[in-house]
Each structure stands twice: as C-alpha cells, then as structure tokens.
C-alpha cells in the first residue's frame, strides 16, 4: 500500500442513502388469483396435482410436464405440524402475551401455511388439530392475512 492509504477511520467519508422505490404492487398470479377469491369467500385454498394436495397453490405441478394444477377449497382436517412460541418482538422486547406460531398443513397434503394459533403455549403440541378463523367478510382482501388466526379443535 502506498503512503496515503493510511487514513484513520475518522477520516473516511460515509454517505447515507436508501432504496429508491416508493412501493411495490405484487400481482397474485394466475392461480394466486383463484386462491385469493377462495380466501375472500372464507375458504382455505389448495392445489390438486392428480390426487396429491399441495399447499399453497402454485400454478404448476412439480412433475416433468410442469402441468397446471387445479385450485380447490381445502376443507381439512388441518394440523399444526410444527409449533413455536414467540416471547419477544423484533427488538427483543418482552411480549405481554406470548404468541403461538405454527406451520399448518392439511391431512395428506404437501406444504402448508404459517399462522397464529390462538391458544396458550402450554396447550399446544405438534400434530394438534386446528381450524381457520377468518376476518369479517368486509375486511378480506384475498391475502393470506384474511385468515385472522387458527384455533384448536377439541379431539
């Protein structure tokens, strides 16, 4: 290194900047649109590739022809396959009420949805049955957040 490249860190200049885009609008896509319509109707969407149920719908099936799947309503039963308890927020602050987050799948399905389970941490376990609780119809937008939360189903 030549002699001048010995500046102390304080001598170096930093420029602030940001990503220049105001916002994004993401389209739901072909089958995503059908899924959005199901969600708005208070139904959980899935996709059938032959006899195989896949969550969430993805338009094309994982086969050698990349064939189109069929978007269908999934009636359940739904299972919280994985559960975790959240006790702190993004910034490490303790939550007043711990929150249960689960990976929810349907019987016989590949894939699933992430969702909040309204239950106390002591009452949840992997493999428990749950069912969706939708937002009121007028609040639904066709997004996955139309499912307000999932609640345990008594066995």
């Amino acid at each position: 290194m030549s002699w001048w490249k010995r500046a102390l860190p304080g001598d170096l200049v930093h420029f602030p900047g940001s990503q220049e885009v105001d916002h994004y609008l993401y389209t739901p896509g072909l089958h995503g649109l059908k899924a959005a319509e199901l969600l708005k109707a208070g139904k959980v969407p899935g996709m059938l590739c032959g006899d195989q149920l896949i969550l969430p719908p993805k338009t094309f099936c994982p086969d050698e022809r990349l064939s189109e799947g069929e978007v269908v309503e999934v009636e359940g039963p739904f299972i919280a396959a994985l559960v975790t308890v959240i006790r702190e927020d993004f910034y490490g602050r303790k939550l007043e009420e711990p929150q249960v987050l689960a990976f929810i799948t349907a019987q016989g399905a590949i894939g699933g949805y992430i969702g909040v389970v309204k239950a106390s941490p002591g009452d949840v376990y992997p493999g428990m049955r749950v069912r969706p609780v939708f937002r009121p119809e007028e609040e639904r937008t066709g997004a996955i957040t139309d499912i307000a939360f999932w609640e345990p189903v008594a066995d």
């Binding site: 993401y26 389209t27 739901p28 896509g29 072909l30 089958h31 995503g32 649109l33 338009t59 094309f60």
Partner: peptide, 10 residues
C-alpha cells in the same frame, strides 16, 4: 401482466 415472475418463467 397478472402472472407472477415464476409463472412467467413457467
């Protein structure tokens, strides 16, 4: 287009 990026590729 309505398609998502991965649907366009598909």
């Amino acid at each position: 287009l309505l398609e998502t990026p991965r649907e366009l590729a598909w």
